[in-house]
């Protein structure tokens, strides 16, 4: 029982790290936005899985509520980010951040 809880939390850490990696290495903005979302999911998974360490009684509801709040924030931010990406594309012709350093 305990082991699975921590396994989920570790999976959350994994998602967080994967998202971070993707956020850095991918140039396309859509991928970056997705990467941020994956990182967010990682955090939510950590929050929600560790809430179940209550030994038998119902899991702690507070992290669940936090996650719901977090998801709404993430959705809102993603919506803004996607629209912004479309605007960047229509202004500059490409959906990438231009200021990448010269290789």
């Amino acid at each position: 029982m305990i082991n699975t809880i921590f396994l989920y939390a570790l999976a959350g850490v994994g998602l967080f790290s994967l998202g971070l990696y993707a956020l850095i290495v991918h140039a396309h903005l859509l991928r970056k936005i997705l990467a941020i979302n994956i990182m967010g999911s990682g955090v939510f998974l950590v929050l929600v899985s560790l809430a179940d360490r209550t030994q038998g009684i119902a899991p702690d509801p507070v992290p669940h509520a936090m996650v719901i709040t977090g998801i709404v924030v993430a959705v809102s931010a993603t919506a803004l980010a996607l629209t912004l990406m479309l605007r960047v594309r229509s202004e500059t012709g490409q959906a990438e951040l231009l200021e990448e350093p010269p290789k």
Binding site: L29, I33, L84, L98
Partner: peptide, 9 residues
């Protein structure tokens, strides 16, 4: 727009 995008990320 580009600055805002970067700022948001």
């Amino acid at each position: 727009l580009a600055a805002a995008m970067r700022y948001l990320l």
